[in-house]
C-alpha cells in the first residue's frame, strides 16, 4: 500500500496534482451550494417578515 502511494518516487508530484484538483473540486461545489442556500434562506426570511408586518 505504502509502495503504491509512493508511485515509484513520483508520489509527491502525482498526489500534489490530484490533491490540489480534489481540494478545488470539492470546495467549489460546497461553497457555491452554501451561498445559494444562504441567499435563498435570507430572501424567504425577508418575505416572511414583510408578510408578518402587513
Amino acid at each position: 500500500m505504502a509502495e503504491w502511494f509512493a508511485m515509484n518516487g513520483h508520489g509527491l508530484y502525482i498526489w500534489g496534482s490530484f490533491g490540489m484538483a480534489a481540494i478545488f473540486m470539492i470546495a467549489e461545489p460546497i461553497l457555491v451550494r452554501n451561498s445559494h442556500r444562504t441567499l435563498r434562506a435570507r430572501m424567504s426570511r425577508m418575505i416572511r417578515m414583510n408578510a408578518g408586518s402587513e
Partner: peptide
C-alpha cells in the same frame, strides 16, 4: 454543468429578487 447550474440559480435569485415569481416560489 452541475456547479454552473447551482451558481446560475444563485445569480438568478440575486438579480430577480424583487420579481413576483421569486416571491411566490419562496412563499
Amino acid at each position: 454543468i452541475a456547479v454552473v447550474m447551482t451558481r446560475v440559480r444563485r445569480i438568478i435569485l440575486e438579480r430577480e429578487g424583487n420579481s413576483t415569481w421569486v416571491k411566490e416560489m419562496l412563499q
